[in-house]
C-alpha cells in the first residue's frame, strides 16, 4: 500500500494502518520531539500529544498541498508547543538583551559529532532558546511566525536565537573537547 492508502485507511479507523503509519514515521517524529523536549521523557510526552493530534486531524491532510512528512511535522510541533505551554511556560523567554553577532566560522570541525550528540546539546538549551532555535534554524519559521506561535515579540525571538547560537557554540566546543579527550 502506498502512503495515501495507509492514510485513507487510518482515517477510517483501521488500527493496522494506523500502526503502519506510526512505524513509518516514528523516527522522524521522535527526533523532532527530542529537540523540543528537554529530555527523553518530555520528548515522549510531546510525541504522544503529537500523535493524537496527527491522527485526529488526518482527515484534513491534503496531499496536493504538502508532503505528509511536512504536514505531520507541523502538527507535531504545534502539539509540542501546546504541551510545553501547559508546563511551566512562565519566564521561558527573558527580556531583550544585547544581540550577539556571531561570526560565520566554519563548522567542519563539528562534523564528527553525531546527530545524537547534537540533539542532546539542543536539549540542554533553556526552553526559550531551544524552541526558537528549533523553529528558526531547523524548521524554517520566520521570526514573525515564531513570535505569533509563541506569543512573544519579534525582538525577543531574535535575541533568543542569538543566545541559543552562542550557547550552542559553547556546548559544541565543550563536546568536541570531550570527544577528543575520549
Amino acid at each position: 500500500m502506498n502512503i495515501q492508502d495507509i492514510i485513507s485507511s487510518s482515517i477510517r479507523g483501521d488500527q493496522k494502518s494506523q500502526r503502519e503509519l506510526y512505524e513509518a514515521f516514528k523516527v522522524r517524529w521522535y527526533m523532532i520531539a527530542l529537540r523540543y523536549g528537554k529530555n527523553k521523557m518530555q520528548a515522549e510526552d510531546i510525541l504522544q500529544e503529537g500523535l493524537i493530534a496527527i491522527f485526529k486531524n488526518l482527515h484534513q491532510y491534503d496531499h496536493n498541498k504538502a508532503a505528509f512528512s511536512t504536514w505531520s511535522t507541523r502538527v507535531l510541533i504545534n502539539a509540542g508547543l501546546r504541551y510545553l505551554k501547559k508546563n511551566s511556560w512562565t519566564n521561558t523567554f527573558k527580556d531583550i538583551d544585547d544581540v550577539y553577532n556571531l561570526g560565520d566560522e566554519s563548522e567542519t570541525i563539528y562534523e564528527q559529532l553525531s546527530a545524537k550528540e547534537l540533539t542532546s546539546l539542543v536539549q540542554k538549551l533553556p526552553t526559550g532558546y531551544r524552541l526558537v532555535f528549533n523553529m528558526y534554524a531547523v524548521e524554517g519559521y520566520s521570526h514573525k511566525e515564531i513570535a505569533q506561535e509563541l506569543g512573544i515579540e519579534i525582538g525577543t525571538s531574535k535575541s533568543q536565537l542569538s543566545k541559543a547560537r552562542k550557547t550552542l557554540r559553547t556546548y559544541l566546543e565543550n563536546q568536541l573537547i570531550k570527544s577528543t579527550d575520549e
Binding site: E107, A115, F133, A137
Partner: peptide
C-alpha cells in the same frame, strides 16, 4: 547562518 545550516542538515536526516 552557518550554525543554523549545520544543525539543520544534521538534524533533518531521519533515515537511520
Amino acid at each position: 547562518n552557518k550554525m543554523d545550516d549545520f544543525f539543520n542538515k544534521r538534524l533533518s536526516d531521519f533515515n537511520t
